[in-house]
């Protein structure tokens, strides 16, 4: 299968992590919205069920996050996440220009994917932000809310639980926005379905891009 124009980008452990993570986070977003916005007159699902599902999915996604961290530590996948700050702004601008204009003029992608490069600069920055800031932030605040007795009671007169909950909901919202954009950006390519096939079967088709 490993022909010239196919790269094995997504090893099994990564696909397992990604699958569990994607499903888990969908459940978290759905139940989270229900917990935050339900009223006695309107609800998407039973509140108690939402709380329980949210707890279970949260623990699952947190444990799963360890697969992502250790997987990256133990394999070479982490090299795709290495970022150089020098010239980053310029690289990002090039990528944004490509998505907003170049793409429509059939120009070539400024950062074509290869064995050495799995992500373009925008992907790299957003994945780094989400995977090493937002998700761990959610895991920590989430565990705090699950075991509220661990939370500091007051931070400069402001309730610790309050801060934790607002931070948790805000990060959750940011990850939801990431997910929408992530899904859309993944659909940009020769054929919208190609990337989704890749994250399932592991192979990225260079010709298909």
């Amino acid at each position: 299968m490993n022909s010239e124009n196919k790269i094995y980008f997504y090893p099994v452990w990564l696909r397992i992590w990604h699958g569990i993570n994607a499903l888990g986070i969908l459940v978290l977003i759905f139940t989270g919205i229900n917990m935050q916005y339900a009223t006695p007159g309107f609800k998407l699902m039973d509140f108690e069920l939402a709380v329980n599902l949210h707890n279970i999915a949260g623990i699952l996604v947190s444990a799963n996050y360890l697969i992502f961290v250790f997987g990256n530590l133990r394999t070479s996948n982490h090299k795709f996440y290495r970022i150089k700050l020098k010239g980053l702004y310029k690289r990002l601008r090039l990528q944004v220009e490509y998505y907003t204009t170049g793409l429509f003029r059939n120009q070539d992608a400024p950062f074509p994917l290869s064995e050495k490069r799995k992500f373009n600069p925008m992907q790299k920055v957003s994945y780094l932000l989400v995977m090493y800031l937002f998700v761990p932030g959610l895991v920590i605040t989430g565990l705090g809310l699950l075991f509220p007795e661990l939370i500091i009671e007051n931070v400069y007169q402001v309730s610790g639980i309050f801060l934790t909950a607002v931070l948790h909901a805000s990060l959750g919202f940011l990850v939801s926005i990431f997910l929408i954009v992530h899904l859309y950006v993944a659909s940009i390519g020769k054929h919208p379905i190609n990337n989704f096939k890749s994250i399932l079967n592991g192979y990225h088709d260079l010709n298909g891009h």
Binding site: M35, A38, E153, V158, S159, I161, A165, S170, F173, I177
Partner: peptide, 27 residues
């Protein structure tokens, strides 16, 4: 804010709600 207890769902900051709706619409 000063209250030690936080009730999930009962507290909704209008500004945070507006900002999040705005970001969602922009996206």
């Amino acid at each position: 804010i000063k209250n030690k207890s936080y009730v999930i769902g009962a507290y909704q900051n209008i500004w945070l709600n507006y900002i999040s709706i705005l970001i969602l619409i922009l996206a």
